[in-house]
């Protein structure tokens, strides 16, 4: 099924290349041809459901960001993955699929929130998980896992409580359970408690 799709697609769209994949058929597509390809996938090839929109940050490589789209055909029962490199490493942007698939709306907002990729043509490209004034994109490789100190979103609450967004204490983490023995003894806990946010990590 997927092989015949691949032959038809590459014959019709000569800019497509096959991408190395350990599961489903995956294709590389240039950003400016994405709308054309996805319209054909939806209307002519039966890939009528967009399951996921996400991205990868390749850190020091260029292109730095690659957007990913996972399609499902509800008639052929087959998945298809499309990978699109963002042309600009510093202000990454991709065309929005929100006009083709309703599910793209929230997925693209999430990817924008966490990776900072702008989806051109999106009807309401605002953050979906972090608050609107948050200055970072947390899934980028240059963002530390613990976070960066930032003011709380509400000024009056920050003033009344003196609290702010602080880097999370990471000592002993990640917090995993061994799984052996009774639950009372295997609750996820810190493995290294020799340092905390009040006591610096010992250097040796």
């Amino acid at each position: 099924m997927a092989e015949s799709d691949l032959a038809q697609l590459t014959e019709r769209f000569d800019y497509l290349t096959e991408r190395v994949s350990s599961d489903h058929l995956a294709l590389n597509c240039p950003a400016d041809k994405l709308i054309e390809l996805c319209t054909a996938l939806r209307d002519e090839f039966g890939y009528d459901m967009l399951n996921d929109v996400t991205a990868v940050d390749w850190d020091a490589q260029s292109p730095r960001f690659t957007g990913f789209y996972h399609f499902l055909s509800t008639t052929k029962h087959d998945y298809l993955r499309v990978a699109v490199d963002c042309p600009d490493d510093f202000n990454p942007s991709l065309p929005s699929l929100a006009g083709l698939f309703a599910s793209a709306n929230w997925h693209e907002r999430e990817t924008y929130d966490l990776f900072g990729i702008r989806y051109e043509g999106h009807p309401d490209l605002t953050r979906i998980l972090m608050w609107d004034s948050y200055p970072y994109h947390p899934l980028r490789k240059d963002f530390p896992l613990a976070g960066i100190e930032t003011p709380l979103p509400a000024d009056d609450v920050a003033e009344a409580t003196g609290a702010s967004v602080l880097p999370a204490p990471m000592m002993g983490g990640p917090f995993t359970s061994s799984g052996d023995g009774p639950m009372s003894q295997t609750e996820p806990s810190a493995k290294d408690e020799s340092w905390s946010e009040k006591q610096e990590k010992p250097t040796d």
Partner: peptide, 18 residues
């Protein structure tokens, strides 16, 4: 305490605000 969510998004204990 924030529990298992040692994360940039999670308040590390509600006693920081109430």
């Amino acid at each position: 305490t924030g529990g298992m969510y040692r994360s940039y998004a999670t308040l590390q204990g509600v006693d920081r605000i109430v």
